[in-house]
Design a protein around this nucleic acid. Structure first.
Length: 434
RNA sequence: GCCCGGGUGGUGUAGUGGCCCAUCAUACGACCCUGUCACGGUCGUGACGCGGGUUCAAAUCCCGCCUCGGGCGCCA
């Protein structure tokens, strides 16, 4: 297909071969128009019945929508055509005929519900808005990688099959590994710490994480993409600064390179890059502010988790990205370090978007004895984590890091109603295919 | 895990006991139309998730199942 020209590059004055999908057919009688679509856009192909070969006309008008065709012909300037140029075909080859009665309408004239769209994802992504989400997703990953590189972090890939049960917090998917019990990894947390303790010092990873929670909400997935960072000789403040810079880089990349996509999603007007630094609220200030908003039946007290309703109300009140810092040590996992001056307070932080939690992070406990104490305090068996804790006996620098819920970043950035829209083939409680 | 609400042609919908052999749009098929750009026009095909029950009468009420969405919890 060396001689294929993209529709966007089909310039007047030459003969080209374009290939793509039949977007629409408009038969006006003596003249008919076929709109051909490819990844770069659309072009109109003209069929004048009186003046053209009967076989050619028959092929052209016999096409079904979404069939894949290759069209060779002269490109002419034509002010009456949608893009100002038009192809008069010499030959039309049907590469793949589409069945009629499509399961959804790629022109977007008729809506389709999310399950219908996910069952027919290929057709769904022929819609402009569908395509836009994944072009932007690609841009976010590109921008994030570049920003990590500027922060001297090395990209790593860690195993998704793990032996130890849990590091806390969530249900895991059990699997059988050559007859042994194993699990799908809930997070690269422990591995990235082991990597940060090496000469790499700063590492990042974008990869899948698996959570076996049977939740059914528009903001949870059972397989999600985690954007992880871990840096040696970083404290919680350093980690938050790097976190801000990565989030802002993602927004900047999209602002710079995805204008058409934002327009297709109808959010080009309001799209703004968040300003740094993000406000920081301590956990204590957070619960006080939520209580003051008066949205909860019961006032929050120290040690409570933040209920969704309070989180939403506070998000609306703050109106932008913000950090919640200084969480009670008891609600954070064993690997999060406590403050030296107050062991009831942890260095853990969350980055919040007004709609939901986006990131959790913190400084890590790098002192071997404290780490073992922490495991025991949370009822975990230090023996089971020996593969992890042993590195802490051989020179583990102070370090800190965080993880962004990748789909949540996309969902909040693009104002998507449902997180499944941000994943090509989402895994939720019901859906295992495609 | 607890709770709530849905499922009507291919798609998206209207329809809360008789006015429904079911509305509208789009798609699909046939015909008319030489500049459409959500082309237009005429005609046509096509559906009440599955099973049971109540009733003279069920898309509509009840029960079970399947299935989808949402709220909470937990989490990112």
């Amino acid at each position: 297909m060396d001689d294929r020209t993209y529709t966007a590059d089909a310039a007047p004055g030459g003969t080209v071969t374009v290939a793509g999908w039949v977007h629409e057919i408009r038969d006006l009688g003596g003249i008919a128009f076929v709109i051909l679509r490819d990844t770069t856009g659309r072009i109109q192909v003209k069929f004048e019945k009186e003046e053209m070969d009967d076989d050619l006309v028959e092929t052209g008008l016999g096409l079904s929508r979404e069939s894949v065709v290759s069209v060779t012909g002269d490109v002419e300037e034509e002010p009456r055509a949608p893009t100002g140029v038009e192809i008069t075909p010499e030959s039309v080859e049907v590469l793949s005929a589409a069945d009629t009665e499509l399961p959804l309408d790629p022109t977007g004239k008729v809506d389709a519900e999310l399950p219908t769209r996910l069952d027919n994802r290929t057709l769904d992504l022929r819609r402009e808005a569908g395509q836009a989400i994944f072009s932007i997703r690609g841009e976010i990953l590109r921008a994030v990688r570049e920003a990590f590189r500027e922060a001297n972090a090395t990209e790593i890939n860690t195993s998704k099959i793990v032996a130890t049960g849990t590091e806390g917090g969530t249900e895991l998917f059990p699997i059988t590994y050559f007859g042994r019990e194993a699990f799908m990894n809930q997070s690269p947390q422990l591995f990235k710490q082991l990597a940060a303790g090496s000469n790499l010092e700063r590492v990042f990873e974008t990869g899948p994480i698996f959570r076996a929670e049977e939740h059914n909400t528009p903001r949870h997935l059972n397989e999600a993409t985690s954007i992880d960072f871990e840096g040696a000789f970083c404290d919680d403040d350093d980690a938050m600064e790097i976190c801000e810079s990565i989030v802002v880089a993602a927004y900047e990349g999209v602002a710079e390179n995805c204008a058409d996509e934002l327009e297709a999603l109808g959010i080009d007007e309001e799209f703004t890059v968040p300003e740094r630094p993000f406000p920081r609220l301590s956990y204590e200030e957070t619960i006080e502010r939520i209580n003051a908003l008066g949205v909860l039946d019961d006032q929050l007290v120290w040690g409570d988790d933040l209920p969704t309703e309070g989180e939403t109300a506070l998000g609306a009140d703050v109106g932008r990205h913000y950090f919640i810092t200084d969480w009670p040590a008891e609600v954070k996992p064993f690997y999060i370090m406590d403050h030296d001056d107050d062991e009831a307070l942890s260095t853990g932080f969350d980055l919040m978007h007004p709609r939901m939690e986006l990131v959790s992070g913190g400084q890590r406990e790098h002192r071997y004895e404290k780490l073992i104490e922490g495991l025991e305090a949370q009822g975990l068996d230090p023996e089971a984590f020996e593969y992890y804790t042993r590195a802490f006996r051989y020179g583990m620098p102070p370090h800190a890091g965080w993880a962004i819920g990748g789909e949540r970043l996309i969902m909040t950035m693009l104002e998507l109603d449902n997180i499944r829209e941000a994943v090509l083939f989402p895994r939720d409680r019901q859906r295992l295919s495609p």
